[in-house]
């Protein structure tokens, strides 16, 4: 397994896009979070916004970079034919996928931590400067308090799970354009469907099924009781999606001709 990991790391490290994508993840996440935090205005009665969700808003855009990184890690090999060399050198296909998953997850965790921490700190500063309070007389949670830590830590995990989900889908679909379309469709379109359906039962069900909505429940620090899923259960839904995608992708990789 160490050799496979080393091989995958070398491939990912030497492809031109990786550095740009990770830089893009950090820049996009922080910039969008800052813009969102700056756009929040509060009344004297307090703010109706969730400070964690606002200061981590950029994750919703930054995740696209993670998706590209993960999709390219495998479908890039299909488009160049490299995959045949890879599988000839490392015939245990599931191990190859596992090594790819480990390398991509590691990179995502590292860059994700930087982007989440930077967004959280800058976002909180801006919100405080704008006079953000949770209500009359209640100050904003500090970063070290339970819910905020959970939101930050959970957002990093969220990004890693998005990477695994994208990798699994790309392994199953192989073509890069189709894979990226499928991943972004699954994330963004499924997240908006609940808002388009008036029926409350369907709405709740679709919300719980949507990997993006359910997964981002981990960022909620206010109105927890009104969420259709608890934060960790929400992240669990995304983990289930990622596991299913990896399993399906791994099976297809094993069964099919390259």
């Amino acid at each position: 397994m160490r050799q496979q990991l080393y091989a995958e790391w070398t491939k990912l490290r030497t492809v031109a896009g990786t550095g740009w994508l990770l830089a893009g993840l950090i820049t996009l996440t922080v910039t969008v979070s800052v813009v969102a935090a700056a756009a929040v205005s509060c009344t004297s009665a307090g703010c109706n916004y969730d400070p964690a969700k606002i200061s981590l808003f950029g994750v919703q855009v930054g995740q696209a970079m993670v998706a590209i990184l993960a999709v390219l890690a495998i479908s890039g090999e299909y488009s160049t034919g490299m995959i045949r060399t890879t599988l000839a050198a490392m015939p245990r296909r599931v191990t190859v996928l596992a090594a790819k998953a480990a390398v991509v997850t590691g990179l995502t965790l590292a860059a994700g931590t930087v982007s989440v921490l930077a967004s959280m700190m800058v976002g909180r500063r801006i919100l405080l400067d704008n006079g953000f309070t949770r209500g009359p007389g209640t100050p904003m949670l500090s970063l070290a308090e339970g819910p905020m830590l959970r939101a930050a830590f959970g957002s990093v995990l969220y990004l890693a799970l998005i990477a695994l989900l994208s990798l699994g889908i790309a392994a199953a679909v192989r073509d890069s354009a189709t894979a990226i379309g499928a991943v972004l469709g699954l994330l963004y379109i499924l997240s908006i469907l609940p808002f388009m359906i008036a029926d409350p039962v369907w709405q709740k069900l679709l919300w719980q099924l949507s990997p993006m909505n359910a997964g981002l429940a981990i960022q909620a620090t206010t109105h927890l009781s009104t969420l259709p899923l608890s934060p960790w259960a929400g992240l669990g839904v995304l983990a289930a999606w990622a596991a299913a995608a990896l399993l399906g992708g791994g099976l297809l990789l094993r069964l099919r001709d390259a």
């Binding site: 808003f57 696209a64 354009a177 908006i192």
Partner: peptide
């Protein structure tokens, strides 16, 4: 393809989703 698909989706579809179905304030 990947870069192009991402860019096209991020400029056409994602702003619409963020504007209509997220916690973003109405002015943004």
């Amino acid at each position: 393809s990947v870069a192009a698909v991402i860019v096209a989706i991020v400029v056409i579809v994602v702003p619409y989703i963020l504007a209509t179905a997220s916690v973003l304030p109405a002015s943004a």
